[in-house]
């Protein structure tokens, strides 16, 4: 019985939250890694792209809610998501036209593009502030739980409860669908293969008649979609605060680098690795130790690291990868 309770507690406090968080990070890291693969720079504006897309989605959600349109048990934000994606795609395409294309044509050093992305980050940050302000916004509606703690206890008769939030389940399901669609696109369609070809060998792609500007546009549209979806899911699961989207940049970069920059499969693995490490390392294991070793009375919470240092986990993972395998676990672009 205690073993069961321990398993339920681990599921409830570690596995479920980490899976949802991992899915969000994976989607974010996929965007970063695709941009890296095609445009060859680390996009520091990605976090603020996520924030902008989410802000637009929230505004549309509020409008829909005011008009009484909803999805029943599902959050209304899903209905607003396409508008957010479209707006973000337009914004990043304009950005590319106004900023990045110039440096691409010049064949500028990647670090100049990184610098330009910092300027873009500033502008996008300002836009998001302009659109929605800097405060925390709640926009989740619909059914809150798929399984709540009480009904789980009644159902199983265990002492330990288990909750599965709608947003958590939704995050994982949507992320799985998006990843499936992305991989289908990259591996099965001519445009997707052209993207991979361009990422693999730009010059040869040109010789084969692949239009680089078309590939770049496609990449931005996909990255904007991924960013908006990741941002909305993150916002639904936690809450929307623009600054959090700047902070999430570090775990997203860590995930993309762990997986190997430019490697989509690696980005997904990296996202879950970072998320599970972060949750597991900042979770107080005292309760679970209580189930597994009833006699043991340790001092403290058995928490390896306080939650306020969760970003340190991403950082340490990043450092370890840089030290021992700079190309990432799944071999991304060379160093």
């Amino acid at each position: 019985m205690d073993i069961l309770n321990a398993i339920v507690a681990i599921l409830n406090f570690v596995v479920i939250p980490a899976a949802a968080y991992g899915a969000q990070l994976a989607l974010g890291a996929l965007g970063v890694t695709l941009i890296y693969g095609i445009l060859r720079f680390s996009n520091f504006a990605h976090g603020d792209t996520m924030a902008f897309g989410t802000a637009i989605t929230i505004l549309v959600t509020w409008a829909l809610q005011a008009a009484g349109i909803g999805l029943g048990p599902l959050p209304t934000a899903l209905l607003a998501l396409p508008v957010g994606i479209a707006a973000t795609a337009v914004l990043v395409l304009l950005t590319d036209r106004a900023v990045y294309r110039f440096y691409r044509v010049q064949k500028a050093a990647p670090i100049i593009l990184v610098m330009a992305s910092v300027g873009v980050m500033f502008v996008m940050n300002g836009l998001t502030r302009l659109v929605i302000g800097v405060n925390e916004q709640q926009f989740a509606d619909g059914a809150r739980f798929v399984i709540d703690v009480r009904s789980f206890r009644e159902m199983t008769g265990l002492a330990e409860g288990l909750a599965l939030k709608t947003t958590q389940l939704l995050t994982v399901v949507i992320a799985a669908l998006v990843v499936w669609a992305l991989f289908w696109f990259l591996n099965r369609t001519k445009s997707g293969k052209a993207m991979r070809a361009y990422s693999d060998n730009e010059d040869l792609a040109l010789l084969s008649g692949i239009d680089p500007e078309k590939v770049v546009r496609l990449t931005w549209i996909i990255a904007a979609s991924l960013a908006t979806i990741a941002g909305v899911l993150y916002g639904l699961d936690k809450a929307f605060r623009p600054f959090n989207y700047f902070q999430i940049l570090l775990p997203i970069f860590a995930a993309a680098i762990v997986g190997g920059l430019g490697n989509p499969l690696g980005a997904i693995a990296g996202g879950f690795l970072v998320a599970f490490s972060e949750v597991a390392i900042t979770y107080p294991w005292l309760k679970i130790a209580g189930y597994l070793a009833p006699g043991w009375q340790p001092e403290g919470l058995l928490q390896l690291l306080g939650t306020e240092y969760k970003f340190a986990v991403s950082f340490v993972i990043l450092i370890v990868v840089l030290l021992f395998r700079p190309t990432g676990l799944f071999r991304g672009k060379s160093v």
């Binding site: 991979r196 070809a197 990422s199 693999d200 084969s208 692949i210």
Partner: peptide, 16 residues
Amino acid sequence: VFPSMSVEENLEMGAF
């Protein structure tokens, strides 16, 4: 060649 793409995909890209 496109190193991460399969031989068949390389040929497909040749015929882009």
